[in-house]
Nucleic acid binder design. Structure first.
Lengths: 232, 232
DNA sequence: TCAAAAGTGTTCGCGGTACACCCATGA
DNA sequence: TCATGGGTGTACCGCGAACACTTTTGA
């Protein structure tokens, strides 16, 4: 441990974006030892006048345009005393999400990497990345977090492809539309998209009604009793 | 900030236990400034050779018998630069749960406080406590976390009272039993409890099948498609 | 007129709630 | 035999999955 029990504190970000048919994570390649050449999550030291969320946003701004990051939330603390070489560092990890239509300019040392083919990662950053993916998958099912992955306007098929990529399994456009409209998450814009070269009915365009995280599937289990006479 | 960007890191615990008809939280009264007389969460400095979870367990052991704490999980990081007086401290908060039948001996400065009537709390410990209660309420609905609140053996009515106290609303014993047995969480022991002085049918006794956290309500929404031909 | 893609209608079944009813005991 | 509390049986309903069918386009 450092003098007088103090430790270095980092804020790290698992920034995810759907590319092609899989999520990708934003990594930068370390130029210097330790672990030169390995790929690391963006982030860095906690500053004197900021909390960890402000810190992760500040460090992220060095790698991507922050306006492109549609959602940020705390993941967990990683504090194994041997998670990296001395001196010790404790990290608060965050999940960040970037919409598919955003393709921000990146510094030369930084790139998106498909999560199904990660390069050699630095320290415990591979484990932290998996925690971010798990969080995203869980929240897709019971929140409106898709707003942070999708472009402003989209067709249901496009959204289905996003969900399928993030979840890692096929998703039915039919049911996705019904579920999300029933929950009041999806709002039709009135516009339609032109069909592709092989024809087909033009698709209606939608957008997410809210662009802030909301739990849309309050757990039915053990909810307070309803007013008398209201069965079911 | 401290020399060279280092900060003190604390591990704090929101230890909850159901007492009477409400949850109570374990607090100790500060003897020294700052905030002498105010009530604080147990916890303290991160040690050199431990991660934050080991640290919170170590500090907790100074206040209660650790064997009585049935479950511990990470809550969140609290890092506002002005959450306490200088020098700055960052805290990783944990949720801890103690069964109702355990009533561990406590040091003189330490006591259980009903969460609906908290005393003056130190720093941001009131806010952290609320985060712990919220986490417990959420997890009661979709996990088997009740194992950490209930005694080893209990009747459904006793369990109903526990759930009602933790959730803050009435709970139906009928439905609680059905839900938890259907999920395979509750196991009958075969024993029965003697009725009270006013009579009534003897109640069957149950226990939690597992004493480790398990998600029992996998979100039905957007799960992977089943094998073909299996409808519904 | 045909293929392709979007979208709707319908059925099914699970699971949680509500509520009526039955069971076992003490006074 | 009655009050009291425990336990079961049953109906209802929301909701997500599956799948057949209709709609609208390009070739």
């Amino acid at each position: 441990m450092e003098p007088e029990g103090l430790v270095a504190h980092d804020a790290l970000a698992v920034v995810l974006r759907i590319t092609g048919a899989v999520p990708s994570v934003l990594l930068w390649q370390r130029a210097r030892e330790p672990q030169a050449g390995r790929w690391a999550l963006p982030g860095g030291r906690l500053g004197a006048e900021e909390d960890v969320e402000a810190s992760v946003r500040r460090h992220l701004a060095e790698k991507v345009d922050l306006a492109e990051v549609a959602h940020v939330e705390q993941l967990a603390v990683f504090s194994d005393p041997h998670r990296g070489p001395a001196p010790r560092r404790v990290a608060t990890a965050f999940l960040g999400l970037v919409p598919t239509d955003a393709d921000p300019a990146l510094p030369g040392d930084t790139a998106w990497h498909r999560v199904d083919a990660l390069p050699d990662t630095a320290f415990d950053h591979g484990e932290i990345t998996r925690a971010g993916i798990d969080r995203l998958r869980a929240k897709l099912s019971y929140t409106n977090i898709g707003f942070a992955l999708a472009p402003d306007e989209f067709t249901v098929s496009e959204l289905r492809d996003l969900y399928a990529a993030a979840l890692g399994h096929r998703v039915s456009a039919t049911n996705l539309q019904r579920v999300l409209t029933r929950r009041g998450v999806l709002v039709p814009t009135g516009a339609t998209a032109a069909p592709g070269p092989s024809g087909g009915r033009p698709a209606a365009r939608f957008r997410f009604g809210e662009h802030v995280l909301r739990v849309t599937d309050p757990f039915a289990a053990l909810r307070p009793p309803g007013p008398p006479g209201v069965t079911g």
